[in-house]
Design a protein around this nucleic acid. Sequence first.
DNA 1: CTGAAAGCGCTTACAG
DNA 2: CTGAAAGCGCTTACAG
Lengths: 343, 343
Amino acid sequence: MQKASPTLEDVARAARVSTATISRTINTPDKVAIETRERIEQVIEKLGYTPNFSGRALASNRSNTVGAVIPTMANAMFASGLQVFQEVLSNASYNLLVASSGYNTDTELQQIKSLVAQGADGLLLIGSSRPEATTRFLQVRNVPYVVAWCYQPDDDRYFAGFDNTKAATSITAEVLKKGHRRIAMIAGFAEQNDRSRNRIAGVQLCIKNTPDAELLDVIETDYTLEAGGDAFEKIMQQSAKPTAIICGNDVLAAGAIVRARQLKINIPGEVSVTGFDDISLATAVTPSLTTVRVPQLEMGRTAARVMLDLLKDGTSKSHELETEIIHRESLAELNNAANRNLE
Amino acid sequence: MQKASPTLEDVARAARVSTATISRTINTPDKVAIETRERIEQVIEKLGYTPNFSGRALASNRSNTVGAVIPTMANAMFASGLQVFQEVLSNASYNLLVASSGYNTDTELQQIKSLVAQGADGLLLIGSSRPEATTRFLQVRNVPYVVAWCYQPDDDRYFAGFDNTKAATSITAEVLKKGHRRIAMIAGFAEQNDRSRNRIAGVQLCIKNTPDAELLDVIETDYTLEAGGDAFEKIMQQSAKPTAIICGNDVLAAGAIVRARQLKINIPGEVSVTGFDDISLATAVTPSLTTVRVPQLEMGRTAARVMLDLLKDGTSKSHELETEIIHRESLAELNNAANRNLE
DNA sequence: CTGAAAGCGCTTACAG
DNA sequence: CTGAAAGCGCTTACAG
């Protein structure tokens, strides 16, 4: 029923040359005499031939496919970075295999295995820390991979990311600069998530270095509006309230802000809130979020370039991208009104 | 250098059976004697054997891969639907190839070709209307595909979606019920986007059927906060202002709301605004959006099931999912205050 | 239940 | 510049 697609063989017969020559005109055109090539190209056109990737992959041991395992597509963060990553790869004729780990390292390993089995020539991974089993698998299989969303110097892996600890430190410094001393944090679950871990560490570090500052609370929770709201509510129910809450990402911060409004808690009048990522949620929410801008698109683009280098030359280099504090409305100077909360 | 992965051949030798038997214990275990099978499974485990997909794909003419071409991953809409789609497929041992069209039909065709060349066993496509060239390609190649994000009865394609026209009609009816009669719409570009087209049609239809109602304006623009804001501003600069603005999606509506705040235009006091999709932006924004909830996750899940059916049995059936109006704050009863704008 | 063997559609040294 | 041929790692009738 289904008309089978034409094969190299069919083209070769129609063009009266060997399959080798067809293959060459497709892959290395300059090794073919110009007249031969043109004739073949016409035949290809006429037959509507497109190479079969399985055959090609099997013979050449390359799949022209790159795999990405990200925590979730549901957060605009990763989705938009992935979007750019895909575009760049697509322009270089690579297809993108996508899988998600749900922030779970076992699932991540499973997905990595699946993509490698599928023949991915390279992998995009998020975050730098993974279990021994995963590291070993990657090493044994010798799959080139680039690590995004984080950066570590003196590491032989290829990064396209930023320093989460440093970024968290910088937003904390900003909060302290506004006069806040009693601080709480709402973060993502840290155990299987090094970005969250490092952001927490950055906040802790910065506060520890400021004699009169205090980190009242660090609540780890899911990256959802609801969970952010719940954590916020819990923090504000305590007798020792913070004057500023640093959030591990914008979703959490937006959740806190939405909840604050329901609870009639004024932000930033009573408590300041900061975000992390700078997704569109940050500007949509009222008050808009003072946050850390993470260069999502640039990261996707850079990761793709590193990937392409790796695939072509077997080597590339790491890139540390810069984050930036975006000042909006949710972080205020600590004034008397807020100070009253301290008594 | 790189230790080559073990092949079927290696396993066969180690287990002292033929490659056929190994293949069978992997693919059709019940055709193999239990003792043989167990012995082989141990060898597989010991050698860390994983099948090479290219070889498998070439021999069986199935790739165990499904492709999805979506407009963009940057909108949480598609991203979260895709997320679920991927999870379900992954559980059925399918890998997901993802590409984006940027709402452009030429790009879409190009990506479809690329995924089909790659050997995708099936395709997930968004929207029902595409150029002749695309339809023909799909038909000639005879690739099974499911269409999501829309639904059409009496159509032999497989849908997992909802009726955009109907959904738009229902939110418009809601707006009219609140007493609004002078209405404007901010929509996505319609030309290459049937969902946008149908939403516009739904609004127009409903308004046409209400004698004293008037559709002042339909502005088509990019699906971004900024563009939504610009369109809002333009609408509100005109002398003939609407009392309600129906937006083609939540991003546009959120953009309008953010801009309104900057312009000190009270929503819904001076104008009501409605959204479409019900992504988290809708609840984060102030006032929160009255919107049409689109069953994104269910759509992803349903699409995956239809896909799996198609792959297994070559047939399945279409699913029309329901949308629902979510009442929040951005749509108000038309009161005297708003009526003043009419004079 | 198992094996021998053909074949899937390419690529790529190797000769010429 | 071109061709003959081996080989990539599987699956699957076909026999037995």
